[in-house]
């Protein structure tokens, strides 16, 4: 099936995520390119900041609610909302409604947004039904399933199905691919030695896959895994966000 003409399928709100904004903007641009290639018009509300997950996980419910309300107001007008992160999309989809258990009006708005929010590969594979992928990567790739994407959203088959559309990619299995990488947000900073030991095991499995490249859907896990690989002297294993892998070369500024 050929791709529909640009923009013909309506608008999609892109929640870039605070980490991508700050650390790795190319993931955001890759997501833009993929959404456009699927025939949608991506829109990036310029007031967006953070989904509130740090507060939610740190026991600061008030902060989490305040940022959730802000994000709901910014994105509820879109027919569909996409984030290049299983953990941020999972926050909106599975946790937002519970933040407002005692507030019917906000809970209804949170539920409405939750129902139309998707992780990027979930959106591309399940909603857009993408059959062509612009990326032209050539090589062996293994895939790490990030916890929130996998267990909160059921993202498992989608990234692999999309990689299957890339003729140059040879997918290799990853032992313990569903195990946490040890990131856990602030856990990585509060309990560095536990986090580091778990990350080490993930790195050992990645290196044993023989793939040379590991793809994943969350920048948090990516920074954790890449950071650990580099710290132990592995300069060769490439860690790449699934959006960048699928999108291929991006336009220079």
């Amino acid at each position: 099936m050929s791709q529909p003409p640009h923009g013909s399928r309506g608008e999609v709100g892109l929640f870039v995520t605070c980490l991508v904004d700050l650390m790795r903007p190319s993931i955001g641009f890759a997501a833009l390119k993929l959404i456009e290639a699927a025939g949608y018009t991506p829109v990036v509300p310029d007031t967006q900041t953070c989904c509130g997950q740090p507060g939610h996980n740190a026991g600061d419910a008030r902060s989490a609610r305040a940022l959730a309300q802000k994000l709901i107001a910014e994105f509820e007008g879109f027919p569909c909302v996409v984030a290049p992160s299983g953990s941020c999309a999972g926050m909106i989809r599975t946790h937002y409604p519970h933040l407002f258990d005692d507030d019917d009006a906000w809970r209804i708005r949170a539920e409405a947004l939750a129902a139309k929010t998707f992780e990027l590969t979930q959106f591309l594979a399940d909603v857009a039904g993408v059959t062509e992928v612009p990326g032209d990567f050539v090589g062996a790739v293994t895939y790490h399933d990030s916890c929130a994407g996998l267990r909160e959203l059921g993202v498992k088959r989608q990234p692999r199905a999309l990689l299957d559309r890339m003729p140059g990619v040879e997918q290799r299995p990853l032992n313990e691919c569903e195990e946490c990488c040890g990131f856990g947000g602030l856990f990585s900073v509060k309990y560095p030695d536990i986090s580091g030991a778990i990350a080490q095991r993930k790195c050992d499995n990645i290196r044993a896959s023989g793939a040379g490249t590991v793809a994943l859907g969350d920048l948090g896990c990516m920074m954790n895994i890449e950071g650990r690989l580099r710290r132990i002297g592995d300069e060769g294993t490439q860690v790449i966000h699934i959006a960048e892998l699928l999108a291929g070369r991006l336009d220079p500024d």
Binding site: V16, P25, E226
Partner: peptide
């Protein structure tokens, strides 16, 4: 310090997404 005790932290791109 907990982060860099166990792993490197990547340098961000020169300009944020926004």
């Amino acid at each position: 310090p907990g982060w860099t005790a166990e792993r490197d932290f990547p340098a961000p791109a020169a300009q944020s997404f926004r």
